[in-house]
Every structure is written in structure tokens, then in C-alpha cells.
Write a protein that binds this DNA or RNA. Structure first.
Lengths: 187, 187, 187, 187
DNA sequence: AATGAATGAGCTTTCATTCAT
DNA sequence: CATGAATGAAAGCTCATTCAT
């Protein structure tokens, strides 16, 4: 359903990732998507609305993936491990979305409204960390610092993985990667 | 000397960081720098040459700072600590350069030639890590993974610092930050 | 139909003839044609494509005129006379096209592809000359020399006619002009 | 003497011929001539003054050549023959000057003043023709028509010669070429 | 005489957006 | 819903010319 709208979103994502926002003309998006220029503006009032929509849908997609198989009765470390690999596998499965997310989450094209909207969906991560600090499992440093550290570290690991995708399924690599992550945050 | 050229570089750096490459017209760079448009193109054949020059000069500046006060007879951990804080203090002292460096080091505007040229200057970091792995001080994981992890983590920490610059001088914060870093890489 | 495209072509022809290619800004073509600058580039990807299109359409127009009323059963001289006057009258009727054709047929703006494309349409002239040489009616000199001579002479005559258009209808002038031409090539 | 001025003139001639007036930046003329941009404007107030100077010096050069070895006591035909070959040999010896002359003698860059100045130097050709018409040797057609015809025909022959320079020294070719010319104008 | 850094008007071309069909 | 011709502001870049040295 709504094929044209989806074609536009898919095409735009790819082009924004590969060429950047300003280097991607709406005319090219329309052409590659196989629709008329007018059609793009029928679904999205402006180019900015298009990229904001893309951002929100990508974040939704990611957040849903992050929560998969996170089991309430597991240990905290097991939960973090699950979320960690959910993130990593999502990145590998959706390389364009992952690229898009890291490239544009701090860009000026994404309005503050969109960012806030997106932040709410990460609430549960904050709760997990706070709990970990209360129980003396995680480092007692400012939570924002911990979150930024995690985020940055994850970006680094994923960047490496993207350049070496064959490692993804090596058990040793997986353990190494998670150890990096867990050593960073554990108290 | 060569005031005009320097004014152009300074202004361009600021504008590229705040607005992005494509959202910064050369006309605005010239105007803000107080020179004619033609003058910009007198010193830099194209807008791309301008940003590549900026990248190289920034990287030079950073690399020189990283090596300051790194003492040969210190322990490896002490050396990493010194480099870590050299980076952090450089970032705080040159926020625009730091922003520019993280934003553009992976951008398509920076040609491969420029990137290679820049890479050579980080050689010594690789050597430090290899030595640490040989001596079983650092984690025995692929060196590229370790480098990306360090880089990503540092970006995260600096991002947090930029939003909370007053913490810079708190001793506890400094120790917290370095502990995050060291725990990540130590074996 | 396609009024805008035609307006652009007409206007460009006039301006290229009067001011030259480089001295004619696309902005002026658009303005004089009564369209937006973008419209010009909607129909012609570049200024060069515009002038090449103009060249091909002009050559088509000329070639078609040259062949009018050339009767198979006439003598060779009568055929040449017909072609001669077809050229002359075409030139008088389409002074801008004639000017354009002589000014730009050797210019670097016209690509080799366009030139070749245009050459094919003059094939029949070559055939006429060869037949004339075979029958000892025309001078036995290299055919290329004869063609260049004819072309050059015609240019000279037309140049004179353009400065004295009132002579066009004088029978004596017509006879004088053709005699110049025929004496040049007849054996 | 005045080496720089001459270098500029030589270089400009070559570049104007090969690329055209507007496609030749003064900066390139200066660079190719091995002088500073300012030097060019020291000798020629404007680019237009440069090309007008070039035109006048070229025309002088040509006119002088045309008159060489034209003997008063020869027949009219012999005189025309001499002038004809003077022109042709000059063209072959100075291909750039010849190209320059034909390309720019009708161009808008050459001011009317320059053109008039140049015309005077052709006075003797007119006198030769008038005498020929009085003596019933040349065609009794308007003199301007005859001049344009001669000029055009000569351009055609020279164009052919430029593309087949090896023919220059073939006696048959020379005779053919002059016969074309003489048949055109003789009564 | 000779230099070349500096100027800024003007060029070709791009592109987000509109709107009549 | 869908089209794509048309728009015109704005972009990167060029170039004839000036002028302090």
C-alpha cells in the first residue's frame, strides 16, 4: 500500500546516506523512486519534512529492535548484553538505516521537535542505567556521561564491524566486542 | 602575514562547523572574512580545496598537541593518560577545530589523498597500542577495533564535556573520564 | 506547440548572430524570450547544447531549401543555377539563419558530432559536382578545392547582397552574380 | 627590444586564433607570455586595445607582403597573379596571422576606427580593379561585388590549402588555383 | 618598467517548490 | 492521486582591471 510514498522514503534514505542531504536533489529522489517531482511534494510538504519523517521512522524501527528478547527476570548484565547485540545486529541488518541514524541524529536538518520526540523512546535505557548505578553494578559517574560514552563506543564498534562484516558471526569477536562495552560501564 | 588567507580559513572553519559545508555559501565566507569573493578563489581554487586545506591544518594542529609532554620513561598507562588529556584539553581549547574534525573526517568532501596524508600523523598511536598489547597491558583484540573503540569513546566523552564545560576542571570528573577510557582498553 | 522552446531558439539565434556566443548571457536569452532562466535549462542542458541544436536545425532548414525545384531532367548548369539561387534567396529570406550558419559552422562551439551530422546533408552537392567533372563540364581540379571555392565565393556574394539588399531583384545583378559563380567552376 | 610587449602580442595572437577572444583570459595570455597580469595592462590599456593592435599590425604585415614584386610594367593579369600568390604564400607562411585576419576582420571587437584604418591599405587593389574594368579585362559588375567575390574565393582556396599544405608546391595545383581566381573576375 | 594580490560584477547552472492539467 | 513544465533565487566560479610596491 501507499507504494509511492514508501518508494520515496526508501530512495531518499539511500541517497541521503550516500551523498548527503544537500547533495541530494529532490528531483533525483523522485527520479530514482520512479515518481514525478510533484508526487514527492504531495506526500512531504518540504524536503525537510521528508528527512524528519525518515528520522522518526528509523528511530522507531531501531527502538523496537533494541527491546526484543530483553527478559525481565534476567540479570542486568544479561539485559545489557541483549540490548548491545540487538543494536549491533540491527546495524548489520539495516546498514543504511544505521548510517542514516548516526549521520543525521546531530544534524541541523532534524528539528528539535523531532529530536525530543525521538528521545522519549530511549527512556528505558536511562532507567536501566539508573538501576545499575543504584545497585553498584555500573560506574557512579554522571548518567549523561555514561550514555554518551556508551553511544560513542557503540558507534566505534559498529564502524569497525561495517568495515569487517565477516567478523559478525565469530564468537570470539562477539565476546571481545561486548567485553569492551561492559568493561567501560561496569563499576 | 597573509592575513587574508588566514581570515578566510578561520571564517570558513566556523561556518562549516555551525552550518555545514553545503549550507555555507562561499559568498558568506568571503563576506564574513571581510574579503572579496574573488580573493577566496585566489587562495583556494575551489571550495573543496578550501575544506581540504582546513582539514589538514586542523589535523596537524591536533597531532602536535597530542604529543606534548608525552614522556618516554613513563609507564604506558601514564602515556595514554597524557595523550587522553592532551586530546581532551585540545578539544576544549579549540572547540571549533574539534567539531570540525569529528564532523568532517568521514565526509566525502575530504579526498582520499587528504585522508591518507592525515593518517600518517597518527602512526605513533598505533605503535603505542601494539606495544601495550605485546606487554599484555591492553586487550588482545584486533587493533583496528581497539582504535575505533577509543576514537568513538573519546567522541562521546568530549560531546558530554562540550555540553558541560564547567566540569573540565573538577578532579573527580577527570578521573571518572579517564577511568572510562582506561577500563575500555586495558586487558 | 512547445512555444517556450521555440521562443528560446529564436531569441538565441538572433542574439548569437548580433553579439556572439560568449557575449550573449543565457540570462539575456531567457529574458528576451520571456521565460525564466530555469526554463532555458529545462529544454537545453547547457548553453552548448542550445547552440548545437540551433546549428542542426538551421542546416536542416538550409538543406531543404537548396533542393527545392531542382529538376532531374534539366541541364547541369540549370541545376547549379537553381541551387545557387535557392541558396541566395534562402540567405535573403533568413538573414539571421544565414549569418548564424556562416559564423558558427567553423566555430569550436559546434561539436564534431554535430558537424558530421550536418555534413551528410550536403552529399548531393558532391554528387552533382562529380557528375559535372565526369562530363567535362566543370574544372578538373580536386573536388574539395572546388567545394571550398564555391562556398567561399557564395559567402562573398551573399555578404555583398546583405549590404545591398535592394539589388536582389535586379535581373542584371542576378545574372552578374551567377556568371561569377559559373565562370569559377565551369571547365 | 620591448621583448615583453612582443611576447604578449605573439601569445595573444595564438590564443585568440585557437580559442577565440572571449575564451582567452588576459590572465592566460600573461601567463603563457611569461609576464605578470599587470604588465599586459601596462602595454595595452584594455583587452580590446590589444586585439585592435594585433589587427592593425597583422593587416600591415599582410599589405606589405601583397605588394612585393608587383611590377609596374607587367600586364594586369600578371599583376593579379603576383598579388594572388603573394596572398597565398603569406597565408601559408603565417598561418596564425591568416587565421586571425579572417576570423576577426568582421568581428565586433575590431572598432570601426581600426577597420577604416585598415581599409586604406587596400586602396591599391581597388585601383587595380578599376583599371581592369576600364580596359574591359575584368567583369563589368559593381566593384564591391567583385571585391567581395575575390575575398570570399581566396578564403575558400586558402582554407583548402591549409588542410592540404603539401599541395602548395605542386605547379599544377598553383595553376588550378589561379585559374579559379582569374576565371571568376575576368570579363 | 614590472609585479601579482585584490576586487566584485557577472557568468552558467542548480534546485526546491508550485500549479494547471 | 499524480504529473512535469515552469519558476527564479542563489550557488560556485571567472576574469578584466586596478594599484601599492
Amino acid at each position: 500500500m501507499n507504494t509511492k510514498r514508501d518508494q520515496i522514503l526508501d530512495t531518499a534514505l539511500k541517497l541521503f546516506v550516500n551523498n548527503g542531504f544537500h547533495a541530494t536533489p529532490t528531483s533525483k529522489i523522485a527520479k530514482d523512486a520512479g515518481v514525478a517531482t510533484g508526487t514527492l511534494f504531495h506526500y512531504f510538504k518540504t524536503k525537510e519534512e521528508l528527512i524528519n519523517t525518515l528520522y522518526l521512522e528509523t528511530k522507531d524501527n531501531l527502538t523496537n529492535s533494541l527491546l526484543e528478547n530483553v527478559n525481565v527476570q534476567e540479570t542486568l548484565k544479561a539485559k545489557f548484553r541483549q540490548v548491545f547485540f540487538n543494536y549491533i545486529f540491527w546495524a548489520v541488518d539495516h546498514p543504511n538505516h544505521q548510517q542514516f541514524y548516526t549521520s543525521y541524529s546531530n544534524s541541523p536538518f532534524i528539528t528539535n521537535l523531532t529530536k525530543e520526540h525521538g528521545l522519549q523512546r530511549f527512556q528505558f535505557i536511562y532507567e536501566l542505567i539508573e538501576k545499575g548505578q543504584d545497585e553498584d553494578i555500573l560506574k557512579a559517574v554522571p548518567i549523561d556521561l555514561l550514555v554518551e560514552a556508551m553511544q560513542g563506543l557503540l558507534n566505534g564498534i559498529i564502524k569497525h564491524l561495517m568495515e569487517n562484516p565477516e567478523k559478525m558471526n565469530e564468537e570470539k569477536y562477539q565476546n571481545d566486542a561486548f567485553k569492551l562495552f561492559w568493561d567501560t560501564i561496569k563499576g
